[in-house]
Design a protein around this nucleic acid. Sequence first.
RNA 1: UGGGAUGUCGCCAAGCGGUAAGGCACGGGACUUUGACUCCCGCACUCGAUGGUUCAAAUCCUUCCAUCCCAGCCA
Length: 569
Amino acid sequence: MNSEKDNNVDANSENTTTTNFIHDFILEDIAKGGRFEGKTVHTRFPPEPNGYLHIGHAKAINIDFGTAQKFNGLCNLRMDDTNPSKEDVEYVDAIKEDITWLGFTWDDRFYYASDYFPQMFDYACDLIKKGLAFVCEMTADQIREARGTLTTPGIPSLWRNRPIEESLDLFNRMKNSEFADGSMTLRAKIDLASGNFNMRDPVIYRIMRAHHHRTLDKWCIYPMYDYAHPIEDAMEGITHSLCSLEFEDHRPLYDWVILNIDCEAKPRQIEFARLGINRTVMSKRKLRELVENNLVDGWDDPRMPTLCGLRKRGYTPASIRSFCDQIGVSKVSSTVDYAFLEHCLREDLNKNARRIMSILNPIKLVLTNYSEDMSETFELENNPENIEDGYRTITFSKECYIEQDDFMEVPAKGYHRLFPGNEVRLKSAYVIRCTSCEKDADGNVTVVYAEYDPMTRGGNTPDGRKIKSTIHWVDAKNAINAEVRLYESLFINEDPDNGELDFKEYINPSSLTVLGNCKIEATLSFSSPHKHYQFFRLGYFYLDPKASSEDNFVFNRTVSLKDSYKPVK
RNA sequence: UGGGAUGUCGCCAAGCGGUAAGGCACGGGACUUUGACUCCCGCACUCGAUGGUUCAAAUCCUUCCAUCCCAGCCA
């Protein structure tokens, strides 16, 4: 199918029809002229390299890159690495890989916030000279206590009005490693009475002797996000800085920095709601907890909402992009139904995944009136949704495997698959009539017996009789053995984040089922470029590239097919 | 309690003064060599609640209610 191709599909050409409030704002900005006069729309995706990207980031990526595309603009990729104590190169590589996989490209516009440390330092000196920043010697605890409460203003730092020259000297010596970690900070002088805590003389530089993954040990002072981010945006000529809702309170500070530094670019911050999906957790902290407590098999466990996890599960980049496009963008805190993600997945896979027959829980079917030494072949379309995808040839003989679920010795009401006396079609082969079955000591059916109707070759009924059910099968002679991993949602709770108990208590005990005795039709080949398949009548499965080898096939169930059959109990 | 934001179908989401788009989910039916797909049909006399302005309000104004975010030297 095309899923292997679509891993490289250029997403920078899609998503031009949908619109949202951010687009409206930008349109207004363009119409107004002013600071956006003659500027091309320029956005950025600024992850901190301290963890793996998840589906929530995909939404942000889609908005950042998608908005640029929409206006024929540009989108940068920037590592927001201003806190070395949490960051690592391991993550920058993974982030780049995931964004590329999603189908977006930043061309040569890949940056690090740490590249701007010298300029940030100079700007900070300027702020001090303007009397807008000062070196403060309060401890973290003292600053917290002096910050005030919701209803009372903060108390000024003892050092708030120290001479400019003194602050300048101290700030330089902070940089030169003369003071201990945490002993001093550089603070912006703004408004201690503001209802917005971010404006109550925020710390903009801290002393921290941590090894930075890029600047190594060059710096021992690091800028804070609120101070650094607007400068990063300004330095890159960003016009629209898109971020999530929780930064709304930070916008006044963002604007304050832009206003008070000597820069040409005047970026505008616009906030949107981050993505929530039910039956999962999205915070980096909780995902890390799952990994570190071995509740999942690493960051790329197929049950994880991480992009590497979804990839291993078999999600396609196109389906994730489609999902992000369709959920829309607004300022309403929302939780999207997991079923919608699955819908977008099936939509893509149904169109593109090749079909193959596979038996998850095999029982043997013996055709008593089919000659032992007879064998024949049938042609099957690879994908009925796309006839151009061609045909394949499968073999057929006296014995094959069928699904346990497709046989009932005593049929339930409304069940019209195989049961003694009933007729069923073996997909593309013959119509057969069940005669009997064999059971083991525990009463489990081990063999089903049936007779085939030679007049129905190919599954056709020349006499025009209707066969209610068509079931899939795999020739026992040359079936390929495989392991199949079935996944269900990781949590049993709709909202594991907000339950009575710790989120880990809501882990679904049957989120993973390993089936070791699956039978797949012999046309499957390890060297095929196709990795995403629809197992006929069962669902979509992905050949796990890490777990599989030439003689050991491991499939992950990406998502089941919808099933409107409701057994009557 | 101060500041910031948000409230349109079970879940997303259009709507921007002219009489409630669409998608998902759900229910029914048609078709079917996938109980899939596809295709039909149904699914908010009502827009958090109140008053008010207007010939006309989900859209403007009052007041109220609910929910989310903020007191890191995290981002």
